[in-house]
Every structure is written in structure tokens, then in C-alpha cells.
Write a protein that binds this DNA or RNA. Sequence first.
RNA 1: CGGGGUGUAGCGCAGUUUGGCUAGCGCGCUACGUUCGGGACGUAGAGGCCGGCAGUUCAAAUCUGCCCACCCCGACCA
Length: 569
Amino acid sequence: MRYSEAFIPTLKENPADAEAISHKLMVRAGLIRKLTAGAYSYLPLGLKVLKNVEKIVRDEMDKAGAQEILMPALQSADLWHETGRYDVLGDELVKFKDRTGREMVIGPTHEEVVTDIARNELHSYKDLPKTVYQIQTKLRDEPRPRFGIVRSKEFIMKDAYSFDKDEKGLDKSYKKMFDTYHAIFRRCGLDTIAVEADTGFMGGSESAEFMLLSESGEDIVAMCDGCGYKSSLAMAGCLLLKKQEATSNKQLATIKEVDTPGVTTIEKVSELLKCKPQNMIKTLIYIADKKPIAVLVRGDHDVNEAKLQSCLKAKELFLADDNAIQKATGGPLGFSGPCGLKGVRFVIDHAVLGITNGVTGANKKDKHFVNVVPGRDFEVKETADVRYITDEDTCPKCKKKISLKRAMEVGHVFKLGTKYSDSMKAKFLDSDGKEKSFIMGCYGIGVNRIIAAAIEQSNDKDGIIWPISIAPYKVIILSLNKEDKDVAKASEKIYEDLCKEGIETLLDDRDISPGMKFKDADLIGIPLQVIIGPKKIKDSKLELKIRATNKNEDLPPQKALSAVKKYLT
RNA sequence: CGGGGUGUAGCGCAGUUUGGCUAGCGCGCUACGUUCGGGACGUAGAGGCCGGCAGUUCAAAUCUGCCCACCCCGACCA
């Protein structure tokens, strides 16, 4: 491609509405433009990268025996009612009525559709296992799109689904996808790590997220430098306190009610009573399957609702509102506490047991208790790990210090089991003559998010530094002076040579100053720059610059092609 | 959905507090000329419903009200 004919609108300044590095650079380098919040157009350079990523994904998926299909984005809402996810997804699901008044949705993911295909087309254990995948645009009405294409309402996903006759088969299919994902990300130049993860609204028994450590990530992973333990924040287990260390040799004082007018938050109580949040017992009232639950955690800890939900085995879980709190505790919001609280199930986080002479709400307006001792002033019956791990915790495996790092999710694999096949009655006949539900797995990759991830991982003050595998062009020829015949001749010759070899090359033949060419080349991040200028060409030399290292070497034009090929392989 | 912020030329911004006549700057864009190894220079140009609607006023980018869009923090999130 000749730059003079290309459509690569680069920007000198950062866009005002971008915060994340990848977002700024994708706009500046002319890869994308925003249409509206959460929806982006891909310009030629961005689309080339996207296609390169897709090619790698297809290549590896095919290699793993998965077969590509294409399902419609347009779906009937009926399917979603069948699995109950119509309500689970809520506002995130894009819904509308077609002209006949039938309720339709735009697919945010395709478990329902693919399960419908399976129940119609797969009938025997002999048809199994099968894994299918597609690369397709999804719509999710995200409450808060951000970081450019990292979280957008419309995005491109590679979603795959496996169907097996038994758990053993699922294990195998899952493992294959797990390994394939590592291969895909590696080929895209990403250093991802796999962490155990919450299954969220997908459901299922086991799942892993593929994460890229990055400041622009929206997730947090807990990592242990000692034993290599890593987990998503939602799943990271907290070490349990033993009761002995909990109530060790501390002077126990007498419980006392104190005035705390209008003071409803941990922070404010802490300030007023001069006590540390670590020594306070935060009491949250949840409604789990319509019943109130009092959840006790340390003042400086946060309740992990995923853990709480699985501990309660609750289908539905949310924080109680003011009325429900009043009803359950007899006191208003902000003054809940465990002492004297009756008729409500308690779930007590282990860390609470370490508190002696603690502070908690008195279930009365403007009153708190001080010198509260768990076990003495309220009953300790049911304890559990229901909080988020913090960077003050130790590793649940090896007890060394844990660190929390921001990360970006680029892939997620799930063992779904029979969640969808059961609810949609997708069954096959097994060899024993019995009808059984398919054992399913599903596997997602944020295809366009990989682009942002690659940029997050690899950039410098001048711009993007593409991994060769997904770079929109492998080589850019900077022809520094159009007037100089030798320069023009050498540039054309090398451009032709590279094109003949099938190496994607951009020839910067624009009639602009050298400085602009250098800046643009660095910004758009082409891995190899062939720089041809009037001075060096007189000595029969040109320059080969490697963007990643900013190292360059002079060499005769005849050797340029072989040098480029050597680097690319 | 809660909290905060922004909206003025294609892009980045000043001007708004204290209303005032023709709305500015830098980059980019067009033409001509000079330049040509790290975002060159000169000359001459084009380009604005000052987010929208309604109000106050002799007069509104500027004051008031409502609305819309976008960004950040949180809630949420395969």
C-alpha cells in the first residue's frame, strides 16, 4: 500500500475523551473512531489488525478440531425465557419488538441459540463430542462503556461451545480449549495468565479467565509471588482464622451503648469513636431468596457477593433496602448490628472473630455499641469466607503475602454442565439406551479487546509497538525525499521486492517532511522501518530500524530484503 | 442508577466569574513559493446555529430553567 493513497488519519494530539493508553493510541493512530458511547468504527488500519487477530483465532480453533458456524444476532426472546436468562440479563439484554409485535433480542452471547441447534440436530452419543465456534458481533447494553473498545456496547466475540456425552468428555473438551486459548494469546503476542474465576450469569461449575496484567484493566487478580497462586478477586479464598488466635489474651471490656447521632458509615463512626475500621463489625442485611440474612464482616472488609451467594446456595441475592432493614432489625439503615438481633440468619466472616472490644450498630437510631465481643455479646454459629481478599491478606495456599494487580480479561472458559441443556431439554440417546442432557462447555474471546490488550502491553512515548503477528503492516518504507531520484528508485525497488514476497508493506511516498514520516511510522507502530534517505543512498546504504528496540543498522539495499525476511521469521 | 466534570472550526483549547458591538489561539485543511534525517517556513485563504430548546435583557458563548451528548469515580460486568 502506498501511504499517499491510504486512509490513515493520524492525530498529533490525544483525543479529549480518552483515558486509557490503548484508547488514546488507537484513535491517534487512526485505527478507530467513535460513533457513540460504546460503538466504534474500524478504519482500514484497525480492521487489518482485527483481521489478523481473527485469522490466528480461526487457525488455532480449527487446529483444535472446532468447526466454524455463524449464528444470527437477531433472536427470538422465547429462547431466553426458556433458560430464564431473559430476566437475569435485565437491561443489559437489548430487546425490541418486531413489526408483528413479537419480542426479539440482539444476542449478547449464544448459549441459547447453539443449544437449540444441538437439540434439533444432535441425537446420538455417536454425534458427540462436537465443538463449534463463531466470530460475531455481540450487543450488550453495558451500564458504563469505557476505555475505548475495552468495554463497548457492541463488540466482537469469538464464542465456542462444546457438547459432550459425559463429564469426562467435557473435561477433555475444556482442557483442549484451555490450551488453545493459551496458544492464541501467545501467538497474538500477549502475556496472559489464567486464573480461576466466578461463573457469573453464565453459570456452571468451573471457569477460568485469561488475564493480561494492565493498569487499564477493569478486573483485579490476586497473585502470590511465593507459590504462583493466582485467582480473580471474586474467587480468591481468604485464610481462615482459628478461634484461638481470634480471641487471644486481650482484656475484655464491658459492652456499652453510645450516642452516634446521624453517623451511619464505617468511616464516620471510626472518626467519631476514634476506633479503627479493622475493629468494627460491619453488619449488612441481605435478602436471599426473599429471606433476610445478616452478614457480618470487619469494617475494613467488603462482602464478596459471589462467595456469599454460593455459601447460602441462594438463587437470588441483593442488599436489603431501608424498609427491609427496619423490618429485619428494628433499626434504620446505618445502625445495624448483631447484638440482640433475633429471627435473622447470621453469616459471620471469619475475620470478625479476630475482633475483641469491637464497635457495631445497636439496631436503634443514633446508637452504636462499643466493647462488643463475638461469642459473648452475640452468638457465633455460622462462619464462612464471604469477603473479598485484600492486599493485607496472605496467600491461601502458602501463606506468603498476596498482591492485588489490575488486569484485563481477554478470554473466559466455562464448564457449563447441563444448565442449558436441562432447561432447554436438549438431549441425546446414550449407548445405554437412556436419554441424557448434553454436557456443555462455552469459551469466549474478546477478539477486538485483544487489539487494545496488545497496545496496552506494548507501547512507548512515540506510539504503538505491534507484535509482528498482528501488525497491520510488517514493514514501512520511509522514502525521505521524493525529489531525489536515487531515493525514489531504491524505495520503489524494495517496495516491489517486499510485495512480491507477500510481505505486507506500506510505502510512505507522501510529499511531506521527513519528521512527519518518522512520527507517523512510530505512532502506527509498524515493526520494521526501512529508511531511505538521500545522504546514505549515495553511499549505497539504507537503514533498517526495529521499532521494538529502536535499534537500527545500515546496510546495502540489495541486502534489505533478506534482512527483513530474517527478522520476520 | 448515585457522585463529579465537560460541551466554542476537523482536532486540542482560551473566552463564561463581572452580559457589550466583528468570537479568538495552536494544529490540521486549500493555493503559491522556499525547504527536505525527527511533527519546517513565508504569503494569501476557506472553515462556527458557541450541544439543543425555552426564558431574562436594549443586548446572551457569557445569566436562569429544562433537555441532550460525552468523560471520570462508584454500582454493574461473559
